[in-house]
Design a protein around this nucleic acid. Structure first.
Lengths: 364, 364
DNA sequence: CTGAAAGCGCTTACAG
DNA sequence: CTGAAAGCGCTTACAG
């Protein structure tokens, strides 16, 4: 690289603007103690040299890196969720002039390396942990980090976190199905992924609460588990439901991902959705709209957005409460995979009307 | 923050290990010129203090930041693609001990800010541009960056890039449909998104090439465009195809995203897939498997992986050819949305057999 | 194999 | 409002 191509430093800008580096530094950071004349000269020189300040140099003296680190699992999590959350984060962080450093952990080696060396420690001002299940020891390790840590899309007691109320969301979804007249509602949970375990847990709680509210018994046979990454497992779970003495009339899937699998399986064996079986998901996957999946929506973008605002507030007023919790709302989005149960499958209601005429649902 | 909680510096490690900072620096970087005794003392001290080197300080002297920046569009691109590509990138970069700095651009303000200030310039050693359409001026601007730039999931002439051969992939897909016996094959392109424009262009080229190979005429009426984010637009596009004097028997969608929309629309109006209409996608979206969508697969993960390897090789042997191109393969994945055309819709073949019996497809 | 010293490019008291 | 100087935490010749 020739000398003229060397990246401009503050000294270059200072020389060009005819001022000292101190003045350049002050002008570029917008400090008030700079004369308008000096400021405009500096700004012009900086532009002409396409000067960009070296965060390395400034962070060395300020102790602030101007960077926020994100720790996320690689494949456990749905990739769209990661992509969308990062987008939400980036928008807020760029306004706060913070850079985004991403650590995506896909295997055990990387995981121990990260927690051993804590590379974020010296290279970021805060850490966001996005849907990453930590052991208690790992949690403690992060507590020692000496910088703000925010848990995103997961609930961490006594630590700052941003998440949705999974139980409330599940209740919402269940009420929709109950209001349509369903009485035998199955629930499919995903297992195997190390993330989203709180979600699985809390969504099941919501499922049970809604049944209780409605005065319906909890039936173990209606709750099945499957590793959503193994198609055969989901197929078996659905098979279990389809071979019950009394088949459910609706399936509430723990996630859209599973709901899509269920949809595919039901279609392949000719079970009409929603005529014979309603299917409800959770998440509002980017494809849910296109495929008409009724679902309980959460917004990954808003989650990222809120997390970024939390972290940047934690970074500015260091006096703020460090363990703030932000609970984001969920919304039910009815589409075309949920409808009233078929009349002949609804014995305890004794409905004789055609399902269509039962669409006017009572309020929750 | 109390003094004991202050993050350990090399000087702390040196004191604890009873050596000089120079020796700590050398030991930690694995330089050979360190006695085994000193090395082990340093390593222990570093571990005990959970010391992490400050890249800010080291980069100031080496001129290397140890960071690779990624520039990506926020919403234009499919979020799963971003998430998966980043995961592929991260795995390779972490092995090369490079951190990942992510700039996600969602609006014009951020875009001009990025290209004006080029914040990556001083804060990363290389830039990866992921499916981001740049104007010629913006391209030139990046050329001035003075650091390696790699274009990912897009073709940039005379610049290092990693991408798939979209035209070849489209030919693959088309041959599958042709081999099944289809003669009237529609193509739906997406418009509106600023990314993937090369893809759209090249996939159309592949579509035409395959028709030519098969000796079939190109029919303008069979090629429609739609903004995949506007459901109504896709519906109209499908409506156009369904109201043609001679309806196509297959739709080759430019992306799985569109294919899913088409599937939903066809289902909603009772057009049996694949009985009446075959649908083929492109990308192998994470949900394609679950939903049985036949598609031409590309691997976002491998793209990220290859891009990271390219960039890290560019960073180590600076003498390497700077404009290397890596073309990744695509694979046809036949699933359940493609089948032979219905006999009555295939006049030029004069097939009388029932579609089912025609499933034994001729080899390509 | 090891250490003392210079210096990377900034910011920040300090003096004016 | 401005500048000279010190110093942030490292790495790298240089000398031993």
């Amino acid at each position: 690289m020739v000398d003229e191509e060397r990246q401009a430093t503050m000294e270059d800008v200072a020389r060009r603007a005819g001022v000292s580096v101190s003045t350049v530094s002050r002008a570029l950071r917008g400090l008030p103690s700079v004369s308008p004349h000096a400021r405009s000269r500096v700004e012009r020189a900086a532009r002409e040299l396409s000067f960009a300040v070296s965060r390395s140099a400034s962070s060395l003296v300020t102790g602030k890196t101007g960077r926020v680190a994100v720790l996320a699992p690689g494949f456990d999590n749905a990739p769209w969720f990661l992509g969308t959350t990062l987008t939400g984060l980036a928008q807020v962080l760029s306004e706060a002039d913070l850079d985004l450093l991403v650590y995506i952990i896909t295997d055990m080696r990387e995981r121990t390396a990260f927690l051993d060396r804590l590379p974020a420690r010296r290279n970021a001002d805060a850490l966001l942990v996005v849907s990453f299940v930590l052991t208690p020891e790992e949690h403690e390790r992060l507590d020692e980090l000496g910088m703000p840590v925010v848990f995103v899309s997961q609930h961490a007691p006594d630590r700052a976190s941003v998440y949705i109320d999974d139980a409330a969301g599940a209740r919402q979804g269940m009420r929709h199905l109950l209001n349509l007249g369903h009485r035998r509602i199955a629930h499919i949970q995903s297992v195997g992924a190390s993330d989203f375990v709180w979600s699985a847990h809390d969504r099941l709680i919501g499922y049970r609460q809604a049944l209780e509210e409605a005065g319906l018994p909890y039936d173990d046979a209606l709750v099945v588990q499957a590793d959503y990454r193994r198609r055969a497992a989901v197929r078996e779970a659905v098979g279990h439901l389809l071979s019950l003495p009394q088949m459910p009339t609706a399936v509430f899937a723990e996630s859209d991902q599973i709901a899509f699998e269920v949809l595919g399986i039901l279609r392949s064996c000719g079970v009409d959705v929603p005529g014979r079986m309603s299917v409800l998901g959770f998440d509002d996957h980017p494809l849910a709209e296109a495929l008409g999946l009724s679902t309980v929506a959460q917004s990954a973008w808003r989650t990222g957005h809120a997390a970024a605002e939390l972290v940047s507030s934690l970074l500015t007023d260091t006096a703020g409460e460090p363990a703030r919790h932000i609970v984001l709302p969920t919304r039910l989005i009815p589409r075309t995979t949920t409808a009233p149960p078929p009349a002949d499958h609804n014995p305890d209601r004794g409905l004789t009307a055609h399902p269509i005429s039962a669409r006017g649902t009572p309020d929750g």
